[in-house]
Amino acid sequence: MAPPLITVVLPAYDEQGQLKECLDSLLGQSFREFEIIVVQTPSEHCPERLVEAYELRDARVRVLRLDAETGIGRARMAGAAHARGQYLLFLDADHLLPEDAFEAMDARLTETGEVDVLLFGHNREYRGKVWPGNAAELLAAAGPAVFSPAERPELFGAPPLVWDRLMRSGTIPAFPDGFYEEISAVHRSLLAATRVAVLDRECVTIRPGTPCTRRAARAPATSTCSTATRAPSSCWTPSPSRPSRSPPRCARTCSPGWSGTTCSSSTCPGA
């Protein structure tokens, strides 16, 4: 059997009960040549019965059962080690994909040939609206040609999110332990790439209601985000005092409580 085009690595942390909708959006893809590796740990936030039901329902869902509760970085690395796909996509339970997302990725890869990284857009649900990701303008400006990172260094200024790109199998860097573990992996992957392309469309939606749950409920009550990195925006809770508008970046605008180079998770939605 030929290997699938895409392997989705999906840690099963599901404190907010969003994993089912994430899996449904994946299995509803119009493009069929993919697999899902769900990484199950003994954590109370990993719904064993739900994961087992999807494993029995569809042969494309494979469950990797770990015998210890690991950090999100190690869970991703464990899943990546068992991937059969030509490209890897790292997702979390609070993500949704439109049904033609993988079809669009396949079409773009047919145009570009093999690349090390395929970047694409994302959006965010916030207060009943859908807002484009903060990398939208950078991606649109990249154009249709394949390029090296040295030719477009401005892309290193995009939010360092691991779930808005495909990474070619065999090029996956290690995810370290700790908070925002994807930041170093994202930058190392891009630095090591020789062929990068952009799919100029939104392929992933991140949903609200999951402050810091991707750290498997082990994050402290207040986390920080750096103006230099514009940390992933899953770790924030909207401030009641902030007017209803697009979530600001850490490096630009936060609530009046912000000072210096960090802001608390309760005042800054990040990227």
Score class of each variant (00 low, 15 high):
R84T: 05
K129L: 13
A145E: 13
A81T: 07
D116L: 00
L88C: 06
E125I: 04
G133M: 03
V146H: 00
H95E: 07
L119W: 03
A140K: 10
R74E: 07
R84G: 11
E114P: 13
D106N: 14
W131Q: 06
A78D: 15
L97D: 08
H95S: 14
D100T: 11
G79T: 06
F147R: 00
R124K: 09
L139I: 09
L88V: 08
E114V: 15
L96D: 10
H95K: 07
T110N: 04
A104M: 06
V117P: 03
D94F: 12
A140I: 06
A135K: 05
A78H: 15
A75F: 13
L118T: 04
A150I: 03
I72F: 11
D106I: 04
R108D: 11
V130T: 14
K129H: 08
A104D: 07
A150C: 01
G71K: 02
R74Y: 00
E114L: 12
P98L: 15
P144I: 03
Y87H: 10
P98K: 13
F102K: 04
G113F: 12
Y87V: 11
P149L: 04
A83K: 13
L88M: 05
T110K: 08
T112M: 07
F90P: 09
E99R: 00
L96Y: 12
L139R: 09
P98F: 15
D94L: 11
V146C: 00
L96P: 09
D94V: 15
R84E: 13
D116H: 00
L138P: 09
L89C: 11
A142D: 07
P144E: 04
H122A: 07
A81C: 05
Y126D: 15
R108A: 13
P98G: 13
A141V: 03
R76G: 11
L138G: 15
S148M: 00
F147H: 00
T112Q: 06
L97T: 05
E103Q: 06
F90H: 13
R74P: 00
A78F: 13
A140S: 14
S148E: 02
V130D: 06
A75Q: 15
R124V: 10
V130N: 06
L118R: 01
W131F: 12
M77H: 14
A83Y: 14
L119F: 08
Q86C: 09
